[in-house]
Simulated assay, not measured.
Amino acid sequence: MGRSHALSGWVVGLAVAPMVGLTSVAEVIPFAAATAGYALVPDLDHPGGSASRILGPITGLISSAIRTFSGVLYNLTKGPRDEDSTGKHRHASHTLAAAIGLGMLAASLGDRGKWAVLAIAATGLLLAAHVLGDWVLFAVLGATAYSIFGAALPGTTPADALQAGYAGIGGWIGVAVGLGMFTHCLGDSLTRSGCPWLWPLPIRGETWYEIRLPRLLRFSTNSWVERLVVVPALLVAGVLLLPGAWQIVEQAFNATSIWVADH
């Protein structure tokens, strides 16, 4: 589900951006890209996940450490009715607690200077581009160039605009990280396996209770439902939620309606 997770992160990032004060294309695109990238991070607990393979042995080692930690945490905190499981995949990294914790860590590191901000943002961007394609890189670079050279306030230099950009990213990077990870958890809750993102809240004797849709609405990962319904819906939403896109569609529809009426 790597592509679906990244696309859902992109869509949620576009939808949430105005709520954190981001409205222009130059602000929204980097935020959505970072959210898309960090929507892949929970699957670091799977050796075959996109996030686990992006940097070869480096991310492979991180994945192994996360899997080990998750297994230990599962055994220490499982309830009397939790299933007999290794507790590695879809456990520790697939929780709201992990999303909030990593988001807060990213926010605190973002206060330490431009290099920390760039490292966190670049990680999300590379993850998104790894799954969705190089268009993500070009979109972010274009938005960055516009914010530096096209939207700088009169009397300011590109360096001033760049410094303002660092500060702006530092203000929202923690939100993008946490939001992306939680979006991943919600996506997994649509599948048959579900996702225990409410850990450690005990539910029916389980602290790792899998939240999921009613049985008839669940689908398997990489099934035809994901490929032919979920992905196309996310692609459409990912375009329509771009700043100004809906207005363009509405104007085109009105123009078409007028043309049809006249003919």
Rank of each mutant, 00 (worst) to 15 (best):
G113E: 06
L141Q: 05
S193E: 14
V260N: 06
S223T: 04
W224L: 11
F253P: 00
V239K: 02
C185P: 00
A122T: 08
L7W: 11
I58D: 00
T191G: 07
W135T: 01
L40D: 02
A176M: 06
S52F: 07
T183R: 12
A252Q: 13
S189C: 07
P196Y: 03
T77N: 04
R67A: 01
G244L: 13
I58G: 00
W259C: 00
T157E: 13
S85T: 01
F31P: 01
G13K: 01
S50D: 15
H5K: 05
G178L: 15
A32L: 08
E210N: 11
V41H: 02
L228I: 03
M1T: 14
L241T: 07
L109S: 04
P232S: 11
A252P: 05
L105E: 02
I66W: 11
F182T: 08
I29P: 10
L76P: 03
H46V: 14
A119H: 02
E27V: 03
R212H: 12
A51Q: 01
I120M: 07
D188V: 06
A32I: 09
L162Y: 09
L73Y: 10
R67V: 01
H184W: 05
I173S: 09
L132M: 11
L198A: 08
D111I: 02
S189E: 05
V16P: 02
